[in-house]
Design a protein around this nucleic acid. Structure first.
Lengths: 111, 111
DNA sequence: TCAAATACATAAGAATATTATGTATATTTG
DNA sequence: CAAATATACATAATATTCTTATGTATTTGA
């Protein structure tokens, strides 16, 4: 099952920040594959959503980049900046609280 | 704390359907107040989001309406149609699975 | 060799929310 | 009792964030 996109909406930045917190540095394509792998194909991040999102996070000063060449192909690695690390904690806390609130509101039992 | 709007985005219809499943019939303003109450003011549904959403659900055939007059003031009650009840179950299942997936992905412990 | 995978990027369009505005009645409070 | 607040609906302009489509180019594997 692939979730209807509206649910994923709003969680993309949180996902990206968390992955970078766990993996030091990652490039865009790697992020899409990692999410697919970790969610058993349940969440698929499209490139049209990811790349603009990465650029936005970089412009906000939350990510830093370094470019690497693999043969002739470019690879752009992203890492958390200090403010990015702070933001990651905030986003994760917010999402956790949101989930708890929704659990109560919708009367849901999680696994 | 009021959650950043992007998280709530995409969950509004699920919330509305669930409340109607629990309460037989409700009117718009009542829904906004109920959500405030149940979430301890953590989720506030704006009227600009709710009314168009209710109209959309009605147009999809998921809700039926009946108008009532309280004095001179109109009140529009919404109820689940049969297909609305089916849809509600689907939406709740989807959201539950989504939460479980996100828990794993973000390594979150819920209360 | 040629399809699929890797790797980036942007643009058009859709969906869904916020904010602002509008209208009107009813209730509470100073 | 006047004025502020709450109740109750609705829509329009705008913002945000995603999907889908498109574009370019390199590398790998059957």
């Amino acid at each position: 099952m692939i979730y209807s996109s509206e649910l994923i909406k709003g969680t993309l930045k949180t996902i990206v920040l968390k992955l970078l917190a766990d993996n030091k540095k990652m490039y865009g394509y790697e992020i899409t594959q990692k999410v697919k792998e970790l969610t058993g194909d349940r969440i698929q991040i499209t490139e049209g959503a990811l790349y603009p999102s990465l650029h936005a996070l970089e412009n906000e000063g939350l990510l830093t980049t370094e470019t690497e060449f693999i043969g002739k192909r470019v690879r752009k690695y992203y890492s958390l900046s200090p403010s990015g690390k702070v933001k990651t904690r905030e986003k994760l806390n917010e999402f956790t609280e949101f989930m708890n609130t929704m659990k109560i509101l919708l009367d849901i039992r999680t696994a």
